[in-house]
Amino acid sequence: EGEAHRVLFGFVPETKEELQVMPGNIVFVLKKGNDNWATVMFNGQKGLVPCNYLEPVELR
């Protein structure tokens, strides 16, 4: 579910809505907001990550 994206930079959450991710993680974007935040799914957890920390990736 969602579009696959690769994480470019590590992100440490500052609020409980945000999700910690590391460079190279593959996350699935469920929704992109107008505020430059994306709702993503990673390892069964859902949370917010900055859009500019993500790049689309083709999964084969």
Rank of each mutant, 00 (worst) to 15 (best):
32 K>N: 03
7 V>G: 03
13 P>L: 06
15 T>P: 05
14 E>N: 15
42 F>H: 14
51 C>Q: 06
42 F>C: 10
49 V>G: 02
11 F>Q: 03
7 V>M: 04
1 E>F: 09
17 E>H: 10
21 V>A: 04
3 E>I: 14
22 M>T: 14
10 G>A: 15
6 R>D: 06
46 K>V: 13
55 E>R: 08
40 V>L: 01
42 F>R: 10
26 I>D: 02
22 M>E: 14
47 G>M: 06
34 N>L: 13
11 F>D: 06
17 E>V: 08
54 L>M: 06
31 K>N: 13
33 G>D: 14
50 P>Q: 00
39 T>A: 05
48 L>R: 15
17 E>N: 10
5 H>Q: 05
32 K>W: 08
12 V>N: 14
39 T>H: 13
25 N>A: 10
26 I>K: 07
15 T>M: 12
31 K>R: 11
59 L>R: 15
10 G>W: 09
34 N>M: 15
13 P>C: 05
35 D>C: 04
52 N>K: 13
20 Q>K: 14
57 V>M: 12
39 T>V: 09
16 K>C: 09
39 T>L: 12
2 G>I: 03
25 N>V: 05
32 K>P: 04
55 E>V: 09
22 M>H: 15
47 G>W: 02
39 T>S: 10
44 G>C: 08
23 P>Q: 08
60 R>S: 15
4 A>W: 10
12 V>R: 13
55 E>D: 05
58 E>S: 13
29 V>I: 03
34 N>T: 15
40 V>Y: 00
44 G>K: 08
49 V>D: 00
19 L>T: 01
57 V>E: 03
26 I>R: 05
54 L>Q: 03
50 P>W: 00
28 F>H: 15
16 K>Q: 11
23 P>D: 00
39 T>E: 13
1 E>V: 11
59 L>E: 15
56 P>I: 01
21 V>F: 01
36 N>C: 06
38 A>Y: 07
54 L>D: 00
42 F>A: 08
33 G>H: 15
6 R>L: 08
28 F>P: 04
47 G>P: 02
24 G>E: 02
38 A>M: 04
51 C>K: 06
3 E>W: 09
26 I>Y: 03
6 R>F: 05
10 G>T: 14
53 Y>K: 08
34 N>E: 14
21 V>H: 01
13 P>Q: 04
1 E>G: 10
47 G>Y: 02
58 E>L: 10
1 E>W: 07
41 M>P: 03
32 K>G: 05
48 L>Y: 12
18 E>H: 12
16 K>T: 12
17 E>W: 08
49 V>L: 11
2 G>A: 08
31 K>D: 10
13 P>E: 01
55 E>Y: 07
32 K>F: 04
6 R>H: 06
38 A>P: 02
55 E>Q: 10
26 I>F: 05
56 P>W: 01
43 N>K: 13
17 E>K: 13
33 G>S: 15
46 K>I: 12
58 E>R: 13
51 C>L: 11
3 E>C: 11
46 K>Y: 11
1 E>P: 05
7 V>N: 03
60 R>G: 15
41 M>E: 15
21 V>L: 11
23 P>R: 07
35 D>R: 06
42 F>Y: 13
44 G>S: 04
16 K>P: 14
44 G>D: 10
21 V>N: 07
38 A>D: 01
16 K>H: 09
7 V>A: 01
2 G>F: 07
21 V>M: 01
40 V>C: 14
2 G>S: 06
47 G>T: 06
49 V>F: 07
5 H>G: 01
26 I>L: 09
32 K>M: 08
34 N>Q: 15
53 Y>G: 01
43 N>F: 02
47 G>D: 03
46 K>M: 11
33 G>P: 08
37 W>I: 11
43 N>T: 04
6 R>N: 04
14 E>C: 10
55 E>N: 02
45 Q>I: 05
30 L>F: 03
1 E>Q: 08
25 N>R: 04
14 E>W: 07
38 A>W: 09
59 L>N: 14
26 I>C: 05
31 K>C: 10
23 P>I: 03
47 G>R: 03
25 N>I: 02
12 V>W: 11
12 V>H: 14
29 V>E: 00
52 N>R: 13
30 L>N: 04
32 K>D: 00
4 A>N: 04
54 L>T: 00
24 G>F: 00
2 G>E: 07
48 L>F: 15
4 A>L: 09
2 G>P: 08
45 Q>R: 15
53 Y>T: 07
53 Y>P: 06
42 F>S: 11
52 N>Q: 13
56 P>E: 04
44 G>H: 03
48 L>M: 11
38 A>R: 02
9 F>Q: 15
19 L>Q: 02
6 R>K: 11
9 F>I: 13
45 Q>A: 10
15 T>C: 08
10 G>C: 08
9 F>W: 10
11 F>G: 02
40 V>M: 04
40 V>E: 00
40 V>Q: 04
13 P>D: 02
24 G>K: 02
59 L>F: 12
1 E>C: 09
50 P>V: 02
44 G>A: 03
